[in-house]
Computed example of a mutant assay.
Amino acid sequence: MAKQTPLTCSGHTRPVVDLDFSEITEDGYFLISACKDGKPMLRQGSTGDWIGTFQGHHGAIWSATLNHDATRAATGAADYTAKLWDAVTGNVLASFDHKHIVKAVSFSPNGKRLLTGGQEKTLRSFNTTNPEAEPEQVGKHEGIIKKAVWIDDRMVLSASEDKSIRKWDTTCNREAQLVRFDSAISDIELSKDGKTLVVASGKTVSIYDACSLEKVREYTLPTRVFSASLHPNKKSIVAGGDDFKIYKYDFESLKEQDSYKGHFGPVHIVRFSPDGELYASGSEDGTVRLWQTNVGTNYGLWKVLVAPDGQDVAAAS
């Protein structure tokens, strides 16, 4: 079996706590990272090459996201603001004030709204085409909001330390559904087709039907899990957590396929690339690492070399 050789993306000086890929554009795809050093970074997604750093926050960055075509970015920070950025020039387009730390940001599919949440326990929706407009209060949790995602341009999901996931209808800003968990939720991710929700909570990774919020299956990890991500074609799931390792499971059989210990600290976030060829991880050790989904193939900076014993070795050039 070919050896997994991750690409290490340096540049951050403190823990990396959030990652997000754009969709595939005519210039490839892109990756944004949120770090407690206060400097979110944009990279070429397939290689990890640094493109630029967004300058303007005055505190740890807890969340970062890109719109589909990577023309806009959004970040949430400990300076009580969420910022909207021109991802091409790096300029701040708008700064949305909050009363506490912002830990979740999410663009609507059409890019016209930005969802925010955090230690205020309040979910808000801002108008990105008219930043001066007053935000809409979508709803409230009983605990800190960790993540929020759009199902479509109307319905959203939010996950909180109050051990719940809530579905909201933004047309009337009312709660449509509530699901309780045994542990605080650390991460949620919506599948590429919008039909599957992945939830990281305690030592489990749970799979839900995104429409009905009925649980389909559940994975139990040997450690507390902080993040999980589903392959775009639903082939596999990767997860990371407290024991510094990244685990890969077959989506249907739940069989563990691989586990890697490449970081030197807990893994806070994992995300698959839009083409599914790699996944990225961010860690307490201050690095972003890129991993091949299919080890031993030529992709990006990975080139297949032949070792003296005749076995293929995937090397990062």
Results as ranks from 00 to 15, higher is better:
306 V>F: 03
294 N>W: 07
283 S>F: 02
250 D>R: 11
255 K>D: 11
307 A>H: 10
249 Y>H: 11
292 Q>M: 04
242 D>H: 13
289 R>M: 08
304 V>N: 03
248 K>D: 13
248 K>G: 14
266 P>R: 15
285 D>K: 01
237 I>A: 03
243 D>R: 04
294 N>H: 13
249 Y>A: 09
237 I>C: 02
284 E>D: 14
239 A>Y: 07
265 G>E: 06
246 I>M: 06
263 H>Q: 02
264 F>H: 14
290 L>F: 09
268 H>F: 13
250 D>A: 08
240 G>I: 07
243 D>G: 02
247 Y>F: 14
290 L>W: 08
280 A>Y: 03
268 H>Y: 15
258 D>S: 13
242 D>S: 13
241 G>F: 08
258 D>T: 01
263 H>A: 01
297 T>L: 14
283 S>L: 01
262 G>H: 11
282 G>V: 00
237 I>T: 00
253 S>F: 00
242 D>Q: 14
246 I>F: 02
307 A>R: 14
281 S>A: 09
263 H>K: 01
253 S>P: 04
249 Y>F: 12
260 Y>R: 10
270 V>S: 10
291 W>E: 05
302 W>P: 04
297 T>I: 12
296 G>R: 07
265 G>P: 05
292 Q>L: 10
300 G>C: 03
272 F>K: 07
266 P>F: 13
285 D>Q: 03
307 A>V: 11
289 R>P: 06
300 G>V: 14
305 L>F: 14
237 I>Q: 06
253 S>Y: 02
305 L>A: 14
238 V>E: 06
252 E>H: 11
277 E>T: 11
288 V>K: 02
289 R>A: 09
283 S>T: 00
281 S>Y: 03
250 D>M: 08
280 A>P: 04
244 F>L: 08
302 W>M: 06
302 W>K: 08
241 G>N: 03
300 G>S: 03
279 Y>G: 00
276 G>Y: 09
239 A>G: 02
272 F>H: 10
298 N>A: 09
269 I>E: 12
240 G>E: 00
259 S>W: 12
266 P>N: 14
243 D>P: 04
264 F>N: 14
258 D>V: 01
256 E>F: 00
300 G>L: 04
237 I>V: 05
243 D>K: 05
273 S>G: 04
286 G>T: 01
301 L>V: 11
280 A>M: 04
288 V>W: 00
263 H>G: 02
266 P>S: 15
268 H>S: 12
303 K>S: 06
